[in-house]
C-alpha cells in the first residue's frame, strides 16, 4: 500500500519543478520569433532569447542557423543574417505557410531532438499566456 502513497507526492513535485523551470524561463529577456509571412497565427508566438540560446548551445557561427544555400549546397562561411526565413522557405504552390512552419520546426525542434537538448514538444515553444 505504501508504494501507492508516493505517487501523488511525486506528481506534485514534478508539477512544482515544471512550474519552477517555466518561471525561470519567463524571467529572461524575451524576444519573439518573428516573420512577416505569419499573418494569422494559429499558435502563440515562440519566445526566443537569441544570445542566451546561442551561448548555452555553444553556437558561434551565424550561418549555422541563418544558413545560406546556393544551388542546393550549403555555403560554408556564408550566412543569411538579415533575411526573413520566408524569403526562401515559402513558395510551393498551395502549401503556403506550411512550408515556412516546416522550416522553422525542422530548424529548431529538429536540432533540439538531435542534440537531446531544448524544447521539442508543441507546448514547450508555443506557450499559452
Amino acid at each position: 500500500m505504501k508504494k501507492f502513497k508516493i505517487l501523488p507526492y511525486a506528481a506534485l513535485f514534478s508539477v512544482f519543478l515544471l512550474a519552477g523551470t517555466m518561471a525561470a524561463f519567463a524571467q529572461e529577456n524575451i524576444e519573439i520569433v518573428h516573420d512577416a509571412a505569419f499573418e494569422n497565427q494559429t499558435r502563440p508566438p515562440v519566445a526566443f532569447a537569441h544570445d542566451a540560446h546561442n551561448e548555452k548551445a555553444g553556437i558561434d557561427d551565424c550561418g549555422e542557423c541563418h544558413h545560406a544555400y546556393a544551388d542546393g549546397e550549403k555555403q560554408m562561411g556564408d550566412d543569411s543574417v538579415g533575411m526573413e526565413c520566408s524569403q526562401c522557405h515559402y513558395g510551393k504552390p498551395g502549401q503556403g505557410v506550411a512550408d515556412l512552419i516546416r522550416a522553422y520546426h525542422l530548424q529548431c525542434a529538429g536540432c533540439h531532438g538531435e542534440r537531446k537538448a531544448g524544447p521539442v514538444l508543441c507546448g514547450e515553444c508555443h506557450r499559452r499566456r
Binding site: 515544471l18 512550474a19 499559452r128
Partner: peptide
Amino acid sequence: WAGQQWPGFPV
C-alpha cells in the same frame, strides 16, 4: 490536456 498546456503537459 497537452493542447491546453495544463500542468504536466509535457508528460
